[in-house]
């Protein structure tokens, strides 16, 4: 069977999560995304352009992000922004992570008590 849609209830991959997080406050173009993701992850994650644009392509297809028209936009410098669906997916992922961290913290406390 041909794969046509992404499983939206599956956890987000780290690059996708970081891209959505980076776009949560303002639109950014490719290089600004790379820099911001490095900053968000305290220098731990440095995406390659192949990984970044592969993820951007999938996010555009799923309409979680969209290309953003700017006055100085050219083919070489295209800005992206979150769509309402992308923002919703980021909230869902944050809720999932919160639940997991709460559960993990509770287990650790029980063990250490």
């Amino acid at each position: 069977m041909r794969h046509v849609v992404q499983q939206h209830d599956a956890p987000l991959t780290e690059p996708v999560f970081l891209i959505l997080t980076s776009l949560a406050d303002q639109p950014r173009h490719g290089y600004a995304l790379l820099q911001d993701i490095q900053q968000i992850s305290n220098g731990r994650v440095r995406l390659s352009t192949g990984t970044l644009y592969g993820a951007l392509r999938r996010l555009l297809e799923d309409r979680w992000i969209e290309r953003f028209e700017q006055d100085d936009t050219s083919r070489e410098k295209q800005a992206y922004r979150l769509t309402p669906e992308g923002r919703k997916q980021l909230h869902v992922e944050l809720a999932r992570m919160r639940q997991l961290t709460r559960a993990a913290a509770a287990r650790l406390r029980t063990r250490e008590a």
């Binding site: 390659s48 352009t49 192949g50 990984t51 592969g54 999938r58």
Partner: peptide, 28 residues
């Protein structure tokens, strides 16, 4: 950086070809 970029391009190109060949063009 060079190593990561070149490996990233090779895996990225392979992933894009797989996506193109296994995805219904009318949907995507």
């Amino acid at each position: 950086f060079a190593f990561a970029e070149l490996i990233g391009l090779m895996t990225g190109a392979a992933a894009e070809w797989i996506a193109k060949l296994t995805t219904d063009s009318s949907v995507r």
